[in-house]
């Protein structure tokens, strides 16, 4: 259904209807912005890079043949822009996994609302995810924060499903180390 609506909007935009592009932006701006934010952890960068992705879509819509869904294509563009930015800015800093996030022992999952509001926990989670290598961080973000399937992630990153699972496993292992204070009894 969503795919059909996207195809309809893309068709209109290809025929020169600017308002169809506006509708596509309104439809996806939040998801793309938050994806960029998850990858960069910076609001200014997320705004700039997510808009860069839409500019790329605007300029190269004629190349979109509809073989994959529009959002897969849009996600691929966004992920590539963000990864290039991170590489350029050298924003990803490998964090030693000896450096663990120490926290008070609280049974967070029995009270998710409290967990969502807990600043210390949220900062700890952000820091831990930020410390992942770019590829693992991207796969992890697409799976756990964006809720995409393994197949969709593989399509976005141009890799196999096995590769996605391997990256997810490595990411989880690193997060387990970083978040030992929360996870261990």
């Amino acid at each position: 259904m969503v795919k059909d609506e996207d195809s309809f909007l893309i068709g209109r935009f290809k025929k020169g209807e600017e308002s169809a592009f506006d509708e596509l932006v309104n439809r996806y701006m939040k998801r793309i912005y938050y994806l960029a934010y998850s990858l960069t952890s910076n609001h200014a960068d997320a705004l700039d890079l997510s808009q860069e992705a839409f500019i790329k879509v605007y300029r190269s819509i004629h190349r979109f043949k509809g073989r994959s869904s529009f959002y897969t294509w849009l996600y691929r563009i966004t992920v590539n822009i963000c990864l290039n930015h991170l590489k350029k800015e050298a924003k990803i800093k490998e964090v030693s996994f000896d450096e663990r996030i120490e926290v008070a022992q609280v049974d967070w999952w029995s009270n998710p609302k409290k967990a969502l509001e807990n600043k210390e926990l949220q900062e700890g989670l952000t820091k831990a995810i930020d410390s992942l290598p770019p590829r693992q961080k991207t796969v992890f973000t697409l799976r756990h924060l964006e809720g995409l399937s393994h197949k969709e992630i593989a399509s976005i990153l141009g890799c196999s499903i096995g590769n996605v699972k391997a990256n997810l496993f490595q990411a989880l292992q690193k997060l387990r180390e970083r978040l030992k204070g929360y996870v261990e009894d």
Binding site: Y37, W109, Q122, L125, H144, L179
Partner: peptide, 16 residues
């Protein structure tokens, strides 16, 4: 067990 807990924990990450 540790990975199950880790996975449950990271799902608690709130979006600003």
């Amino acid at each position: 067990e540790a990975l199950v807990k880790t996975q449950r924990l990271v799902r608690l990450k709130a979006r600003e």
